[in-house]
Write a protein that binds this DNA or RNA. Structure first.
Lengths: 106, 106
DNA sequence: ATTATATTTCTAAAATTATCGAAATATAAA
DNA sequence: TTTATATTTCGATAATTTTAGAAATATAAT
């Protein structure tokens, strides 16, 4: 179950366009950014952008809030954290990582 | 460039079968496991498994070492680390994560 | 040499994803 | 109420991925 949802989230992040979108949103922080602003940044047709944003929303990596005509996309840091945690579990946490830079504080 | 390769790696991890494979290998640690052992664990046809393993190899998440007839698959923790680092950059490192559990040691 | 084991390559079908123009919807401004 | 802005839905096509049986290869054991 957790593996399934994590795989889906990783898959959604595993596309250049979507990773760019998500990264841009992360850069904008907690307020996120309107779809139109993302479009200016990424430079793809609105329908294509909408499709990719929907996929990110579908796995919870983005939440949307409407302010009149403008639809804000807000990155869900907690969800990203869950993904990172999954990747780290049994790896860094288990002391298997070479560098140790991800050692969790006890 | 970094975004491209990271997206490809995320995409490879973003498949239930491959994530299971990779996770199993991570569990086995630095020695990794033979293809046949993975097959017993995951339970899919050899040709399908071979395909998925190849994809993981293609992005560097797995390295293969042959010992006579047996081909060992070894998880590349450093590569996984790179992926995690990318996801964390401008997020946790920038102090945007809610929990702070990923705060890097200064 | 023959047989057994481990794994891959080939091939082909089914499923999913990506792309984008055109039309539709929703909300606000004139 | 007409027009403009912001974004989505529809529909269709191209591209990629997934799946797996059958045949091939590679290496070792008998």
């Amino acid at each position: 179950m957790e593996l399934e949802i994590t795989a889906r989230r990783l898959a959604e992040l595993g596309n250049t366009t979507r990773l760019s979108i998500f990264r841009y949103l992360v850069k904008t922080g907690f307020e996120g950014a309107p779809v139109g602003q993302i479009q200016k940044e990424i430079g793809i047709p609105a329908s294509t952008l909408s499709h990719h944003i929907n996929r990110l929303v579908s796995v919870g990596l983005i939440r949307q809030v409407r302010d009149s005509r403008t639809l804000y996309c807000i990155p869900q840091f907690e969800v990203l954290e869950e993904v990172i945690k999954f990747l780290m579990s049994e790896c860094c946490a288990g002391g298997k990582c070479s560098s140790g830079i991800f050692e969790q504080t006890p």
